[in-house]
Nucleic acid binder design. Structure first.
Length: 398
DNA sequence: GATTCGTGGTG
DNA sequence: TCACCAAGAAT
């Protein structure tokens, strides 16, 4: 049972929009994707920024557009080239979909993005947020793009009742009222930037917020930062896996991960998860037999790499292997395997965890290799032949 | 609605 | 230190 809001309430909503846009016009950050009106560039920025902080996305933006300045050049690129530029950014399905959508637009839409939300939502990688963000920012369509920031800011400003799961539609309706006749680009970017800089998830800086006096949560709640209530996140399970580095005639065996899943399309050293009760050594011998049809033996335990993925934490036990027989082709497994030189390796798109292992594959130099073969003790007292990976070791990303 | 998709910064 | 979280989408 809801009664019509009063005219006074509606005026308050519009004033929030006025103050928000006024603040943004005074203090907006100078971000690279705000220096263009090219829909393609705005699209690329929005995809890069999905679940990604501004400072992490920033270098990729320039790099990506230098490599693929237009939709057509992106569409004509090979998928692996796109993934290589995306390397390290995470959520690699974004790169696949960006590339796929570019090819669709070239072939079916004369290389032009549609300006309507409903049409954009049909494109790969365009969800509710990205479609509205590109529509508003690139085409001036008066819609509200609800990312996590905008949703949180609107929920707090208007103290939207979190029960019943109607927060998003209510936030969108209120946002649309607050938008009024303001430029959709400024309004939407303002909403997100306020959430990024002041109305943060955990400890909002209400004391410095330009909308504090208009904020219902600030006025009525003892702890606005606790609103809206957050769902507890599932705990990340711990996974143990073994990885094998096998060199033959100056080339290393690498496999390409299937598209669509974790790290889709990226290349890595073969390996796999330990089975219950299985040792890492046994696991890596088994994996090479199953995945590559190779009989191998462990030469050396090079070290362990700790790495966090989106929804689990992994310990990767890395071994140098020696191969005896076999050509290294998969046994019925649809898994692309290749032998590549150490020089070719950095040209492939590699996961961050694999980059951490490149210290063990550095090209042979006359002074470096082969001098020491002693086991490196766990205590680290005996100098290891090569650097041991440690948690948070510097990643070599060429 | 709940899961699966990376990575790096931070309080 | 370490759990939390960031300009979400797809299934």
């Amino acid at each position: 049972m809801k009664r019509p809001k009063s005219a006074r309430w509606a005026r308050g909503v519009r004033e929030v929009g006025d103050r928000l846009v006024a603040w943004f016009e005074r203090e907006a950050l100078d971000l690279p994707w705000r220096r263009t009106r090219d829909p393609y560039r705005i699209w690329v920025a929005e995809v890069l920024l999905q679940q990604t902080r501004v400072e992490q996305a920033r270098p990729y933006y320039g790099r990506f557009l230098a490599a693929f300045p237009t939709i057509e050049e992106l569409a004509q690129a090979r998928r692996e080239e796109v993934l290589k530029v995306w390397e390290g950014a995470g959520y690699y399905a974004r790169a696949h979909r960006l590339h796929e959508a570019a090819q669709f637009l070239i072939h079916r839409r004369q290389g032009k993005l549609p300006s309507e939300v409903e049409e954009m939502e049909q494109l790969p990688g365009f969800g509710p947020y990205t479609s509205r963000a590109v529509a508003a920012i690139a085409f001036g369509v008066p819609v509200v793009a609800l990312d996590a920031n905008a949703l949180r800011v609107l929920a707090r400003l208007f103290l939207i009742d979190p029960s019943g799961g109607k927060t998003a539609p209510r936030a969108e309706a209120l946002g649309r009222q607050a938008l009024g006749g303001h430029p959709p680009r400024a309004f939407n970017e303002a909403l997100m930037e306020l959430g990024q800089r002041y109305c943060t998830a955990r400890s909002p800086r209400c004391g410095a917020c330009p909308l504090a006096r208009r904020c219902a949560a600030r006025q009525e709640l003892p702890d606005p930062g606790a609103f809206p209530p957050r769902r507890p996140r599932p705990v990340r399970p711990r996974v143990e896996a073994a990885v094998g580095l096998l060199e033959r005639e100056g080339r290393w065996l690498v496999g390409q991960r299937p598209p669509g899943g974790l790290l889709g399309g990226l290349w890595e050293f073969p390996g796999g998860k330990l089975k219950p009760g299985e040792s890492a050594e046994a696991a890596i011998i088994r994996e090479f037999r199953e995945e590559a049809g190779l009989r191998t033996s462990v030469v050396e335990h090079l070290g362990d790499v700790e790495h966090d993925y989106s929804h689990f934490h992994a310990t990767l036990h890395v071994f140098r292997l020696a191969g005896t027989k076999g050509t290294g082709h998969p046994l019925g497994v649809e898994r692309t395997l290749r032998w590549v030189t150490a020089r070719e390796l950095p040209a492939l798109p590699l996961p961050t965890a694999t980059c951490k292992m490149l210290v063990w594959v550095s090209p042979r130099t006359s002074r470096g290799s082969g001098s020491r073969r002693g086991r490196s003790s766990a205590s680290g007292r005996a100098a290891p032949a090569r650097p041991r990976a440690r948690a948070h070791a510097r990643t070599l990303r060429p």
